[in-house]
Computed example of a mutant assay.
Amino acid sequence: MSLASFEDPLVQRAHAYHQVILAANVRLTTPPVSRLRLVSVTPTSSKGDRVTSATATFSFTVEPADCNSWGTIHGGCVFTLCNAAGKIATAAVAAGARNIVSTDLTTNYLAAVPHGATVSIEIECLRVTKSIGFLRGTIKDAQGAVCYISVQNVSFEL
């Protein structure tokens, strides 16, 4: 599913929740979250006509403001991107989810990414219950090498 099919409910929910995040706290979400670009939302399993898990893929170009003193993406920026992407992926799967809050987010830093690089962020919403989402994700460089890994749990209201 590409963004050409914007009428798809998963893509609509993902875009809508991205706007919710941006509106919630402009100071914290203008950069880097405002530069997070949704590339696709792909269902990975379903039950009947309901999607039960999906992978959301984003792209992000690292700017100097996102970097530490060594010129590579700052760990806090990586954490913020995984956090926001996870919430967006959850909103795509859990129709009607609101007030999505991370309850646990673990990020492993494997390799640095320099400013100017464009990375892909893939977050899979593995499962949602009535109030909890379970996610895992990766951030890969332009060559497809995994640079960061995340595991995240979120809670939400329906």
Results as ranks from 00 to 15, higher is better:
G48N: 02
Q143W: 14
S40Y: 06
N83Q: 15
R98D: 11
S2H: 09
Y148F: 12
D49W: 10
V146A: 01
F156E: 00
T107Q: 02
G144P: 01
A112F: 05
I123T: 09
L135N: 11
S59W: 12
R35D: 14
C82E: 03
A89E: 03
A94Y: 04
R37P: 14
V113E: 10
E157K: 13
G76W: 04
Y148N: 11
P114F: 05
I139G: 06
A84V: 00
A89M: 01
S2L: 07
L158I: 15
S102Q: 07
V154Y: 02
V62W: 08
V26C: 10
Y17H: 00
S102I: 05
V51P: 06
I100L: 01
G137L: 02
N108L: 09
T106R: 15
L36T: 01
V20R: 07
I139D: 07
F60N: 01
N83V: 04
G71D: 01
S150Y: 03
A91E: 01
A56S: 09
D104M: 09
T90W: 00
V101D: 08
A111F: 12
P32W: 02
Q143P: 08
M1K: 05
G75D: 02
R13K: 06
K47L: 12
L28E: 12
V93T: 05
K140S: 13
S45C: 08
I132R: 12
I123D: 00
V26D: 13
D141Y: 00
T52P: 05
M1F: 09
A54S: 03
S59N: 12
S150K: 03
T61E: 08
E124T: 14
T107A: 03
T57H: 04
V33G: 06
C125A: 05
V113K: 04
T72M: 05
N25K: 12
L126S: 11
N68M: 04
F134R: 06
P32D: 00
R50Y: 11
W70C: 08
F6D: 14
S120A: 07
A4W: 04
Y109I: 03
F6C: 09
L110G: 04
T44G: 03
H18G: 10
H15L: 13
T90C: 04
G71R: 04
R98W: 14
N99T: 09
T57D: 10
N99A: 14
A54L: 06
K140W: 01
A145G: 12
N153E: 08
A111E: 10
L22P: 07
K47S: 13
A14H: 01
T138D: 13
S102M: 00
Y109G: 02
S46A: 10
R13S: 12
T55H: 06
L3W: 02
S150C: 15
S46R: 11
C82Y: 07
W70H: 15
E157M: 14
F156K: 03
P43K: 02
R50Q: 13
S155M: 14
